[in-house]
Design a protein around this nucleic acid. Sequence first.
DNA 1: CTGAAAGCGCTTACAG
DNA 2: CTGAAAGCGCTTACAG
Lengths: 325, 325
Amino acid sequence: MSDVAREAGVSPMTVSNAFKRPEIVLPETRERILSAARRLGYVPNGIAGMLASGRSNLVAVLVPSIRNSSFARTIQGLSDALSEHGFQLLLAVADTADSEFQAVESVLARRPAGIVLTGNEHHPDTVRLLRQSGVPLVETWILSEPILDMAVGFTLGDAAGEMARFLVSRGYRHIGFAGYLPAERSRFLERQRGFQSALRQAGLRDDLIFHADETVGFAGGRLAMTELRAREPRLDALFCVTDIFAVGALFECQRRGIAVPRDFAVAGYGDFEIAAEVVPGLTTVRTRGYEIGRAAASLVVERAAGRATTSRVDVGYELIIRGSA
Amino acid sequence: MSDVAREAGVSPMTVSNAFKRPEIVLPETRERILSAARRLGYVPNGIAGMLASGRSNLVAVLVPSIRNSSFARTIQGLSDALSEHGFQLLLAVADTADSEFQAVESVLARRPAGIVLTGNEHHPDTVRLLRQSGVPLVETWILSEPILDMAVGFTLGDAAGEMARFLVSRGYRHIGFAGYLPAERSRFLERQRGFQSALRQAGLRDDLIFHADETVGFAGGRLAMTELRAREPRLDALFCVTDIFAVGALFECQRRGIAVPRDFAVAGYGDFEIAAEVVPGLTTVRTRGYEIGRAAASLVVERAAGRATTSRVDVGYELIIRGSA
DNA sequence: CTGAAAGCGCTTACAG
DNA sequence: CTGAAAGCGCTTACAG
């Protein structure tokens, strides 16, 4: 910067002003500075700027996985919204309590303007670290307490309950559920509870539950069908916690020659791109991962700008009825 | 840090040493410092550290899209390898020349230890900026010149040619190609050229080419089938530049009642998870996106450590033969 | 509208 | 093994 100042014949702080507050610098001075900067190939050192100003234009996002379409959408939404506001995105993939703690620790060293987390279950040590940092926090994909600071999501259980009622309305009576492990995680459990209570209200069996590890993909649907049909031969529908399981279940029906939706219904969660393309089309809960990302970005940006904001955003969901149920 | 120093009764620089070079500090002094730090909830300010040391543990990655499984794998590989070395990942999604330039500019302000790019085609302005920054650069998913600095990938054309020869060997004679737009982009063109030259060598028609926008998903396969079958009713195979198109083509066959692989073959590129699950299983080129990410991370980390490294890494590919061809 | 001075929180030689 | 001093490249009040 001092090189630019010398080249333009002004002081360093006028150079700084020409970049940060152009309106307070005479147009001709500004022009001289900008052209000097261009000539020298000057790229401002943001590190120094942040240290001096105490402001940061970095937002960190912690996701359990990036391969999951839902989180990929959230990241895309964050990335789009943040770049519109001149913020950058620090990505940390952390799938265990330990790695989450480590990620938070190293992220905090960068003094980000905000941290976007997935879910509301974090190790007490992580929570302590997060809290005392004073950094704005957004938890995503969940809207139930405890919420650390701000949250963007929707009511997971409502969506699952609505889908269960829909399946019942279509005449299915032995409905299974394929969920994720660890089943106690609230992000997963809420869906299961919503499903079960809807079935109970309909006077139906609510214990046809199967759990697969989050690392399992399409195979989850196949495994669920095998196990649940063994437990209940009359099984006539399967609601999956993710479209991936659901599509896997559809493939399995195809292999076994089970007619969908006549003899068996499959419903998913997510409305990933494949849901509209698979044959038959997948009935599913459309979630708004992209909007979650954008909303989370907004909350952080608003907070960084010192503006008061809401701290809860419900992006909603939608039942999408296709051919599979 | 000065608080910690006071609390532990030492100077700030001993605190710094206790963290960065623990071996030169007396064990008992170190212990006193660490416990003081813990007591005060001290989190080192990495920003200040970077400014003072001129070293950065940040690596930026620029991808055209995060929804694409290939890039998601690369990012996962980068993330895993970088966190093992204490580096962090700055993610920028840029799908146009303009946004790439902007992303590079803002990334450079952070003085990263390296920048990982996708492909080898960048706007001249971007190249200039990149070059004069002196930051280590890794281009991924490509191994052909011009390469700015380092590259990790495999020979795209070889893989496509090999698949074309395989289809020919199975007896298919009117083989179409479904590629991405803009077709001139070398990352796309190399595959097409490899495919075409293999067909020509087999004495077959090489002009059954269809292009779809990169934003098109499964629909790409459907569109390719419709258009190419209109142009050549005897079309009996389709090689797709991505498994997504290929699976879309399989779904389309299912809808139209075309028997795969008896009457029609479909081959993909990527070996995404769905390739093994769809019915019939998809014959495809397995690429190593995760390894590309890990290798790119290694190159940057080695360079940051001042160690000499190779500047080209070929991670290879593999033909995976399943039921679709 | 422009500038001299202090300071952000570390690290880096260099002494002791 | 420990510390006083200078400096990384900016920004922030505060003068002029």
